[in-house]
């Protein structure tokens, strides 16, 4: 099956390794992956700030770029949620672009959801030894129902032990622009998350959204924790984090 990878602007800029890990997982699952060259952003920053115009234009752009894919896979619950859940609300009419955008929404998946429920991946290629704890990123969890999927995939790593933290479903405080508009509250929420991570006893925290990871890692480092590893689920499952080719 022909799968389009929507890298997301944050992964493109801040941590390309997640993109390459995703490519490896998709290839391992037998997908024929394409990466449209001119992709940029899903439009979420504008949409969440109340600016629908740019979000609509980007939705149409994305629908064109991924028109010939059977599926679109996104290594982020919030970007996948934007496309799958929110794009259709921006295009309620029956025009040609609206139909295209809604069709795009219907075949877009968050990475772990795709691997478990569409690709039915049974043997993840990565290796991971040790304890890890999983943070459920909000959009993936509540907009897309991503809960068991990452856990099912992590369970395929023979030497990894999942140690659930308390309140793993509570927001880490990122929230896009929220993290800079209300940075004090955001930091406090990240503090609470850090406390639960530490209490879990795991030395690695894993999540499916780079925004959360930057927030959690940034706060952990600031409060003096240089040891806890903060990884994207794709990096763990593909076992090639840090490698780019």
């Amino acid at each position: 099956m022909r799968v389009g990878l929507f890298v997301t602007c944050l992964v493109d800029l801040m941590r390309p390794s997640i993109g390459f890990a995703t490519l490896r997982l998709l290839a391992h699952a037998g997908c024929d992956v394409i990466v449209p060259e001119h992709q940029t952003c899903c439009g979420q920053p504008g949409y969440n700030a109340g600016d629908h115009t740019a979000a609509r234009e980007l939705a149409i752009k994305l629908a064109l770029e991924f028109a010939d894919c059977d599926y679109v896979v996104v290594p982020s619950g919030s970007c996948a949620g934007m496309i799958r859940v929110h794009y259709p609300t921006l295009f309620p009419d029956d025009s040609e672009p609206a139909r295209r955008v809604r069709a795009l929404a219907a075949r877009t998946y968050e990475l772990t959801d795709f691997l478990v429920n569409i690709a039915k991946l049974q043997d993840v290629p990565g290796r991971f030894t040790g304890n890890l704890t999983y943070h459920d990123s909000c959009s993936g969890l509540r907009e897309l129902g991503v809960k068991q999927q990452p856990r099912a995939l992590l369970a395929q790593l023979p030497d990894a032990t999942l140690k659930e933290m308390a309140q793993c479903e509570t927001c880490c405080g990122f929230g896009g622009a929220f993290s800079v508009k209300f940075d004090e509250i955001s930091s406090r929420m990240a503090d609470n998350k850090a406390r639960h991570i530490h209490a879990s006893g795991a030395n690695t925290v894993v999540a499916g959204d780079l925004g959360c990871l930057l927030n959690i890692e940034g706060r952990l480092r600031r409060i003096g924790d240089q040891a806890t590893r903060v990884l994207h689920i794709a990096e763990v499952l593909a076992g090639d984090e840090g490698q780019t080719s």
Binding site: R15, S179, V180, D183, S187, R219
Partner: peptide, 11 residues
């Protein structure tokens, strides 16, 4: 405001 309460992991 990002770095008031956090570091930014660099790319």
């Amino acid at each position: 405001a990002w770095t008031r309460g956090r570091d930014l992991p660099a790319p």
